[in-house]
Amino acid sequence: MAKPCAGVWGRSMATGQKTYWHLLSQRRAPSDYEVVTSRLLYYPGKEPEVHTPVGAWMGKHRSTIPPETWERFNDPRQTTYRSYTELQSRLEAHIDEVIRADVCGPVSRDTLALLKAYVAPLRYPCHGLMMLAAYAGHLAPSGKVAICLAFQATDELRRIDRITQHAVKRLGADAVRASRLHWQEAKEWQPLRKVIERLLVTYTWDESFIALNLVLKPLIDRVFCDRLGSTLDACGDGTFQQIFRSLADDTRWHREWSAAAVGTAFGPGETDAVQSVVDRWLPSVQHAVEVLAAFASNDAAASDMSEYAVFIEGMGLNAGKGNASKT
């Protein structure tokens, strides 16, 4: 402790304290990621200073896992705002190059049909995915989780932008605008729309987050990014595949950090609650994927489900009591 008169500035010149208060117990120099992301939420465990309806909502729907447990979660990519904008601006510059190199020759009728039926309407479910990420983010049990979900939400915005931009180039603005009707009425989209709409009114944080990031996104992202990309490539539109490949990088990270988050928050003996959410949502998501991805081969669908099973089993869970192998 400094003496009252010590130091040129009236304060001690060397405090012996090497980092912020909440990182001292680590007894090591914190990483940049830890300095700028840890314990950013001040309200968990505190009585709110104001009682608003939103505050009551948050209290009612928050995660059942205590905030101090969630605070132990670290994003495996250690994403900060600085690293995110650096990484994503690089990926976006790459897409700009891909689009610049795109020479739009005659587009086959099959390709146009695919673009109209599957690509242009994709903007709507992706917007739903953005809303769902934002919901989980605003109610996130720790600052680090909130940051991952904020970046996930804007990754969806990225996907929407690139899909729209390129679809307008291929189809024209009017056809893209008209795809709202397709999303609302075409049979192939309805099971997915139903899942997304039901998920939008699922407000309990644990259920909303698990259904989104452990069930819906891992499966639907494969369809959106990989299957649609390779189908378009087979039809001669390789540019779209390159765009989707880059977008798939984002979704890979969504799976990685979600698995890490669930692994941190739910101990080996506590996965029943997670499994029950997976069981509840998987059948309808699988059905939505099957109906939507009719354009892809059966082999591709089976391969996606096996990959999903590996992902989910990595967390000590199972893919819907054998559903994976049946598909």
Binding site: K18, A150, A153
Partner: peptide, 23 residues
């Protein structure tokens, strides 16, 4: 939301080095 995350992280990063000088 991203902007505000930036505005949280900039001062946390900049001021961190000053803790050892002034608590």
């Amino acid at each position: 939301a991203l902007d505000e995350c930036r505005h949280a992280q900039i001062p946390l990063r900049m001021m961190h080095k000053l803790v050892r000088w002034d608590r």
